[in-house]
Computed example of a mutant assay.
Amino acid sequence: MRLNQKSLEKDQLKVDKLMKPYQGKLVSELKRGFLQNYSQDTKASFAVLARRMFGISDNHLSLDSSEKPLILKTIRVTGNDQPAENMSFFEVRFDEWLEADSWHETMLYQYFYDTQFVFQVFQQFPSGLRVPDNQMTFKRALVWQMPDYDLEHGLKKLWLDTCHLIKTNQIRIVPKKQKTGKIIYRNNLPKSKDNTVCHLRPGGKNGKDVIMLPSGQEIARQRLWLNKQYVNDVIL
């Protein structure tokens, strides 16, 4: 269900109240309080930390004022106002994209139309030097839903461009040899330079994790990603 601006603002106030005690604190300090029994110290530990801060066990956050759960995602921002990371979502189901009678019937549209998110932002404030993750600071938690304009333009354009390439058999998969001798395969699916909102990138277990396109071509499993500059514009 699409939330109006007042509902989003109400959710934001609730989240601000919950997260206010932690704003400005170093990740190392937050980990001592929330991850005492968590042995791993990896990128994934940010997601665990974010959940612990909200007192939840998965990525679904329920608020009294919210009409449905919000999806919790973490973002790490470097210093000097550099863009955040590309944000990964779900595996692309090309068959579903091609079978949909219209844009509004696709799972891609319905997911971003219906879903609200809470972005937990951890930022590196010192300038010039890249600091370890534990020295990053919790900045804020932002309640967000993709604007209608971005749904109907950037996200829709990705769907249209991808379907056109597949339907017209224009997908190109080119092997490229790296300096190490490893062979990787490049393709011409929409990249971040082609779309201001999102792009496709491989997201399988390894290079052998492939799927079959309707043309009979094998291609690495693809995931949807929001562009890092787009994410940066949302959170800063």
Rank of each mutant, 00 (worst) to 15 (best):
R130F: 11
L213F: 08
M212W: 00
L158Y: 04
N187W: 11
G207R: 10
D161P: 02
Y185H: 15
S7K: 15
W225I: 06
I235H: 06
L13T: 05
Q123V: 07
G204E: 09
K176S: 09
Q23H: 09
T74F: 00
I211V: 15
P126C: 01
E91M: 04
K205T: 10
Y149K: 12
N80I: 01
D16S: 09
W97T: 03
P147R: 06
Q145R: 07
P132N: 05
L30A: 00
L160S: 14
L213K: 15
N227L: 07
Y109G: 01
V174C: 03
K182T: 12
D64E: 15
N86E: 03
I71E: 08
K176E: 09
Q124E: 15
W103A: 06
L72N: 08
N134W: 11
P69W: 01
D161G: 06
F112H: 09
T78S: 00
L129F: 12
K176D: 05
F89W: 14
S66N: 00
C198T: 12
Y149N: 06
H104C: 02
F138R: 05
T115R: 14
D95E: 14
T106Y: 05
S102T: 12
I71P: 02
M136L: 12
M19R: 10
F117P: 09
K14Q: 14
N227Q: 03
K6Y: 13
K20Q: 13
Q36M: 05
V231A: 00
L108Q: 07
D150V: 05
P126W: 00
Q217S: 15
K157Q: 10
G79L: 04
M87C: 08
F125V: 15
M53Y: 06
N187M: 13
D133N: 14
F89K: 04
V48R: 12
R2K: 14
Y111S: 03
S215G: 03
K25R: 10
E85Q: 05
Y230G: 02
D95H: 09
G204R: 08
K205E: 08
A50L: 03
M19H: 04
Q116W: 09
W103Q: 06
V27D: 02
S65D: 07
T42G: 08
L30E: 00
L155N: 14
K25M: 07
K14D: 14
L129I: 07
L8D: 01
V143R: 13
D64G: 10
M1I: 07
E99Q: 14
R201I: 03
S28I: 13
T115M: 11
D58P: 04
G181T: 10
F90D: 15
F90T: 08
Y149I: 07
T78A: 04
Q145Y: 00
F34R: 08
K25P: 00
H60E: 13
T78M: 00
Q12A: 03
D16N: 15
S88C: 01
T162Q: 13
N59P: 02
L158D: 09
W97R: 04
L3S: 12
Q110W: 00
Q229I: 11
Q124S: 15
V210E: 11
F89C: 08
S127N: 08
N80W: 02
I71R: 03
I184Q: 10
R32W: 00
R52S: 13
S45F: 05
Q120W: 04
K20L: 10
M136W: 01
G207A: 03
M19T: 15
Q135M: 13
L108G: 09
D64F: 10
K156D: 06
E99V: 01
D58G: 04
